[in-house]
Amino acid sequence: MSAAGWFIVLLALVGANLPFLNQRIFAAVPLKAVKKSAWIRIAELIVLYFVVGAFGFLLEARAGNRFEQGWQFYAITFALFIVFSFPGFTFQYLVKRR
């Protein structure tokens, strides 16, 4: 696997955990509420999936060998993105704070 492939995997790992590790929308826009709701986190997760996917598509096209993908590819990569978000989900919802 090339360096660009590993970069996309690392970017997906960071992007999948970003909604769970802070109380700002896309880590930039503060909310007036104290905590983000789960629906906002899910919406952020979906948007970040498409952002990381577009970046990966751009890198693949730049390399010169862009391949057509079917719905199976997108279903599997979205499931992998959800699995990548597990550490952030665990930190946000399952770790007890004192």
Rank of each mutant, 00 (worst) to 15 (best):
S2D: 12
A3G: 14
A3R: 15
A3D: 12
A4I: 08
A4T: 13
G5D: 09
W6C: 09
I8Y: 03
I8M: 15
V9C: 08
V9F: 13
L11P: 08
L11T: 08
L13A: 15
V14N: 01
G15M: 03
G15V: 04
A16H: 04
A16K: 02
N17G: 09
L18H: 06
L18Y: 11
P19E: 05
P19A: 11
F20R: 01
F20M: 07
L21D: 02
L21F: 05
N22R: 02
Q23L: 06
Q23S: 11
Q23T: 08
Q23C: 01
R24L: 05
I25A: 11
F26H: 02
F26T: 02
A27N: 12
A28R: 13
A28T: 13
V29Q: 05
P30F: 04
P30E: 08
L31Q: 11
L31M: 15
L31W: 08
L31D: 14
A33F: 05
A33M: 10
A33Y: 00
A33N: 07
K35F: 09
K35A: 14
K36S: 12
K36I: 07
S37N: 11
S37W: 04
A38P: 05
A38N: 12
A38I: 08
A38T: 14
A38S: 12
W39L: 13
W39K: 14
W39P: 00
I40L: 15
I40P: 00
A43E: 00
A43D: 02
E44D: 03
E44G: 03
E44Y: 01
L45P: 00
L45N: 01
I46P: 00
I46T: 07
V47W: 02
V47E: 02
L48V: 11
L48K: 04
F50L: 09
F50I: 09
F50K: 04
F50R: 05
V51Q: 06
V51N: 06
V51C: 12
V52I: 12
V52D: 03
V52C: 07
V52M: 05
G53H: 05
F55G: 07
F55R: 00
G56P: 06
G56D: 05
F57Q: 03
L58W: 14
L58V: 09
L59G: 02
L59T: 01
L59K: 01
E60I: 10
E60S: 15
E60G: 10
E60C: 06
A61V: 03
A61E: 07
A63S: 13
G64W: 06
G64S: 10
G64D: 03
G64V: 09
N65E: 15
R66A: 15
F67A: 13
F67H: 12
Q72F: 06
F73D: 09
F73Y: 15
Y74S: 10
Y74C: 03
Y74G: 01
A75Y: 06
I76A: 13
I76M: 11
T77G: 04
T77M: 08
F78K: 10
F81M: 10
F81Y: 13
F81Q: 08
I82T: 13
V83E: 14
F84M: 15
F84V: 08
S85P: 03
F86S: 09
F86Q: 10
P87Q: 11
G88D: 07
G88P: 05
F89L: 12
F89Q: 14
F89N: 00
T90W: 15
F91H: 13
Q92M: 09
Q92L: 14
Y93M: 04
L94Q: 07
L94K: 12
R98E: 10
R98W: 12
